[in-house]
Design a protein around this nucleic acid. Structure first.
Lengths: 340, 340
DNA sequence: CTTGCATTGAGGTGCGCACCTCAATATGAC
DNA sequence: GTCATATTGAGGTGCGCACCTCAATGCAAG
């Protein structure tokens, strides 16, 4: 039979009340008592029954995803996965909210975050672009004892918060390696397109990409990053112009999560030129384009995994539990037509 | 406040006892009562509290991984991950056992499985090569109400059991695509090495590999599969001979999970010839070889994910619960030096 | 020795549900 | 109508723990 708290009390030679005090780190316990209980835990192999704990605490957790309002298919995917998790976690007494706020004004984001307290929420997973204001607001959230997860976003990593997402430098490097090897030994230029280069993740991907191309594929030359600002007309214009000025373009790398706008522009402008195309994130669009062989490879991070990981982390932090780090590392996936 | 079973009874206009009968599918309940309760569940949004259920049932689950005795690093990795899961699940009243038995004699495996009953175990995850005897033993296990997971192994999929692992045809196709595109337009032969081609997964990978090479890379010619039987001397011999007879070999594809023996043989025999190398599974060996650029790409399935998925599935089946299918699909990962 | 404070023990309650028993009522066959 | 059987209700117990109260003991300073 598995030992209970009662067995533990007996083994430690103390009362149940003291065991409770030690296990839940309540005040007014002598170091001696703590030692006795700790030793007994080791000796008899006591493990708290999480079901009984959950039942007795009878606490409902509430977590919130704070996502941008503007986005395309990848954002939709994230919201869908978060919605799934919300339904599933209903059973486990955890509320999952999905909020969308405009991210263009850092002050507004910071203000939004300031309104959150430990009484409102146990944890937040925030996907917001890098800015000192937001960074500061997140730090203050942590101090108010709200668990914070930096979610797929380009913040400098906060010491006291967890990060869920891929290493964007490595993701860029992976894109570079795939692009370089897929192109073969044909020399030429690589067009690099982003929604904006203001975001930290874009910068890191670009750096990773360039480092590999420069080191391993000297016959290839990445062009300066084009910024679409998620505007189809602008994208059409600058991409068409770039392709005209660089007839020796052999590949396109789209380093933002939303590839639909830039790639539609590329395809309408490319003529009959065969281009190697690498993009980020699995979406209905990129999936279809892989199937049609209009994209050669997609570098992706699984949004479902990201959502679940963020929730597991917030839950573990709220319970002061450790978690299995290896399970929470989001993989940099390489998607081809063949392994969809 | 979240509705409890008591609230549900009230809302349905029945007693707690009847609610209990309906929820736990006990006998002697009228269809009318079932309908009333089901309707009330919908209406008030009742969800069973899993913590309370677990506590009241006070059941300990026990699951077992049945793995081969012989193997190399990938097997070690699996065992390590299963051990991790065992420790973590101790808290949740679930015993995880890790058994290793010789897999060469199907009768022996079948006999081993026959000794398992629902009184011994709630579920088993079996990694055994295809054979009618084992297949039959698994079916009889299912009939004895033991939950069965076909674990990373080449069984034909049983209808009444779950499968955890990748689609091996697709994995082979992915390897083919990566190899083909990495090689470039240089024509030549591809050496294909396996531990044995008796296993279904080897056959499927080979088929997937060939289908892509033939369809998309007609200038490349895969050689007949070499079988090492996990014997270093034999591997050395046949690989050396094959390389001698085929000086135009441009690539090597190792389709077994354990690549150390065959690749060591390749490297000792290849001379200064530059070969594109694709292998399967992440192990300390393949990881190091990726870093050293002696392997170009590894097609992998995450053993930690596989172990956890098998356990989640067995647990869900034991509780007659549904599970989130998308979370259980094991991805075909493409590992490069850059995204390790 | 007294006072004050820190520490401990004993005991109770409740979390939401599963599982059990026994009596009461409904339903159908005849 | 009677009987047998199917269905229902009432009520209790226990799962392992958190959280609370109150009294009892220890210890040190004065």
């Amino acid at each position: 039979m598995r030992p209970t708290a009662k067995d533990l009390a007996e083994a430690a030679g103390v009362s149940l009340a003291t065991v409770d005090r030690v296990l839940n780190e309540r005040p007014n316990v002598s170091p001696k008592a703590v030692r006795k209980v700790a030793e007994a835990i080791e000796r008899i192999g006591f493990v708290r029954n999480p079901a009984a704990v959950a039942l007795a605490r009878n606490k409902t957790y509430s977590f919130r995803f704070v996502l941008p309002t503007s986005g395309d298919q990848y954002l939709a995917e994230l919201i869908a996965r978060a919605g799934e998790a919300k339904e599933i976690l209903r059973a486990d007494s955890t509320d999952v909210e999905i909020a969308q706020i405009p991210m263009n004004d850092p002050h507004h984001v910071a203000k939004y975050l300031s309104a959150i307290g430990a009484d409102t929420l146990d944890g937040v997973a925030v996907m917001a672009p890098e800015s000192p204001q937001v960074r500061d607001a997140l730090l203050r959230l942590v101090e108010r004892d709200v668990k914070v997860v930096q979610f797929l976003s380009g913040q400098e990593r906060l010491e006291r918060a967890d990060y869920v997402g891929i290493d964007n430098f490595a993701a860029g490097a992976t894109a570079g390696k795939i692009a370089g090897r897929f192109i073969g030994n044909r020399p030429g230029k690589i067009m690099v397109v982003a929604e904006t280069m203001m975001a930290l993740d874009s910068i890191q991907r670009r750096l990773g990409f360039d480092s590999i191309i420069n080191a391993q594929f000297p016959h290839l030359h990445p062009l300066p990053s084009l910024e679409t600002y998620a505007d189809a007309n602008r994208a059409d214009l600058i991409i068409r112009r770039t392709l005209q000025h660089n007839p020796d373009t052999v590949a396109v790398y789209v380093l933002s999560s939303e590839a639909r706008v830039p790639l539609s522009a590329v395809w309408s402008a490319q003529g009959s030129r065969p281009l190697t195309v690498v993009a980020h994130e699995r979406t209905p669009f990129s999936e279809q384009a892989l199937m049609d062989e209009r994209i050669d490879a997609v570098i992706a991070q699984d949004p479902g995994h990201a959502v679940r990981s963020a929730l597991r982390i917030m839950r573990a932090r709220a319970d002061h539990r450790e978690l299995l780090a290896s399970q929470e590392r989001i993989r940099i996936e390489v998607l081809l037509k063949e392994n969809l």
